[in-house]
Each structure stands twice: as structure tokens, then as C-alpha cells.
Design a protein around this nucleic acid. Structure first.
Lengths: 161, 161
DNA sequence: TTTTAATCGTTCCAAATGGAACTATCTATT
DNA sequence: AATAGATAGTTCCATTTGGAACGATTAAAA
């Protein structure tokens, strides 16, 4: 009895992550649909909102979207006028992506949306103290680190904030 | 300065969830591909592994997969002989799903797979104490609860274990 | 009882997705 | 400098996905 309880704690932890994940996805889906964006497009816009002027490759590393999906999603965003794509002088294979004014406005709307992920998460976080949140973040980072450990993969960070 | 730090803690927390999520998805994708399953199929098998003899609707509620995707995924699993589908006597609209012997074997393989999600998560969890894990689970549940609060949606639980 | 409304799952099909091959550009080697 | 190899992004296309309409069955209302 007791033994069984213990063996399943890690499963419960895993499931609790899955549950949060499921909710996040649902919320994103709704926000994205409202703005006529696909989920990859939502991710791209929000990634650029956090740190603009980065390459597609960098977005790919952060969002873990396959290049073809990314390329098509960016293409759509560019056609809608949300994103500006210009080749870097330093290396003309790379495309430097940037939010246009309307793209920035869109991102801000999404960020401030009452029922958007950011605001809902802000509310959800308010039940914890700053200290607790930092502990959660640290724990999550350790879990991510452990999950990536076995894999051969470089870490990717945003250029800085 | 200080103010800015505080306003972004919840964003960091959100991103730390996204990061774990990204890793989980990558791992699942790999496991699934190895067994020639789609991701929905992987989810279904693992859900049935945790609690068998449930309806498609119940799986849908737990996995948040759209019914059409679910139906097709289950169909594939049934054709491969992993899942047995039989209508319930009580209500013949509902299909009762159950893992076959080979389905159960498959689920156990996935569960014990060295680089599968379950084992990697078990390893990742081992850096924490039981108490810490339980705190994490509780925190995650509270976050999920908060994220669902605004939405009109019933809670779904597995029949029990 | 008959009619109406709701619900579970399936089918259909337009759209999104993602692996593989390709193009253009850059880097390293001979 | 010329050649080979690597890399960012694009294009192609087969597969997957998921919303909407549908069929079958049950529950509720008339």
C-alpha cells in the first residue's frame, strides 16, 4: 500500500505537468483563433515579443517547431504584415525577424487579453509568494535539465533581456 | 528595476512550464515514433494503461483530444489489435475501450523504456524529496484549477485507482 | 406514446503539419 | 582560388489533424 503510493508520486507529478500543459494549450488555442493565428504563429509572435530581432533558427530552437512549419508560419505573418523579415548583412542565409508596429500591437493585445495565457497565469501565480514562485521555477528548470541530459542538445537562450 | 523583476516572475514561471512541456513532447514523440504510433495514439494507450475500460468520451476529457482525432486514432489502434472496442450494454452509444494483451504489453514497454517519458521523469524526480514532489504536485493542481476557473468546464477524474 | 432534444461516436474534407529534398550562402580544406 | 562540406531557410507533398455535418441511441417533454 504505502510502497505503491511512493512509486506513483513521480507519475502524479508528470500528470500534474500534463494537466497544466493541457490548460495552457487550450487557452493558447482560443487566443490564437480569436486573432486568426495558428498556434505556431502565436508562438512566434510571443517569442518575438519577448526578444525581437532574432533569426528563424533561434525561434526554432526556442519553440521546438520544425523548420518547415516555422517557415510557413512566418510567411503567413509576413503577408499579414505582422512580421518584417530581412536578411542579415553578416550572413545572408539568415533572416532577421522583427515585429512590425501592427505585430507589436497584436502581441500587446494578446499579452493583455483578459482570458489570454499571460493574464490568466498572472492571476494563477498570485496565489503564491515570490519566494514560492522562484522555487517552482528552479524546480522546473532542474526537471528540464534532467530531461534533456540524456539527449545530445545545446541549450538555447534568448539574447538577453 | 526591482519592480520589473517582480512583474516578470510569473512570465518566467510560465516559460518554465513551457520548457518542461517542450521536453515532454519531444520525448513522447520519439517513443511514439519508435512504436509506430501517432502522438494521440500514444496518449490513448497510456491513458488506458492507467485506467482501462473507459469510454472514448472519458479519454477525450482526460487528454483533451478532439473527438474526430480520437476516433481515428482509436480506430488505428483497434486495427493493430492493441485496443478492444465494445459497445456498453448500458448505453449503446458509448464504446468501452480496453487494452488487449498486446496493447498492455506495448504500454508496459513504453512505461519501462529507458528513454521513455516515465523513466526519465522518474529519474528527474529523484532529485527531490517526497515532500518536495508533493508540494510541486499541489502547486500544479492549484495552478490548473486557477487556469480552468474562468472557463465553464466540469472536472474529469479517472474512475479511481 | 410520440416527438423533441441531447449525446457518443463516425465520417468527410479543408487546412495544418512536418520530413525530405532543394537553393542559396558561407566556411574550411586542398 | 577552387572544391567540398556545412548551414539557414524554402518548397514539395504525403500524412495528420480537427471542425462540422451526420447517424445511432438514449433521455426528456408533450
Amino acid at each position: 500500500m504505502k510502497e505503491e503510493n511512493e512509486t506513483t508520486t513521480y507519475m502524479q507529478l508528470m500528470l500534474s505537468f500534463a494537466e497544466v500543459q493541457k490548460n495552457m494549450l487550450r487557452i493558447i488555442q482560443q487566443s490564437a483563433a480569436e486573432k486568426e493565428l495558428s498556434i505556431p504563429q502565436y508562438s512566434i509572435v510571443m517569442t518575438l515579443f519577448r526578444c525581437s530581432n532574432i533569426t528563424q533558427k533561434s525561434i526554432g530552437a526556442q519553440t521546438f517547431l520544425p523548420k518547415s512549419t516555422l517557415s510557413q508560419a512566418v510567411d503567413g505573418l509576413a503577408k499579414e504584415g505582422y512580421v518584417i523579415r530581412k536578411p542579415m548583412e553578416k550572413d545572408r542565409r539568415e533572416m532577421c525577424l522583427e515585429l512590425s508596429d501592427s505585430g507589436l500591437a497584436l502581441a500587446e493585445e494578446l499579452h493583455l487579453q483578459e482570458k489570454g495565457l499571460h493574464q490568466l497565469f498572472k492571476t494563477a501565480s498570485s496565489q503564491f509568494t515570490e519566494r514560492q514562485i522562484k522555487e517552482l521555477i528552479a524546480a522546473h528548470r532542474n526537471i528540464s535539465a534532467s530531461l534533456t541530459k540524456t539527449k545530445r542538445q545545446g541549450a538555447i537562450t534568448c539574447s538577453k533581456s
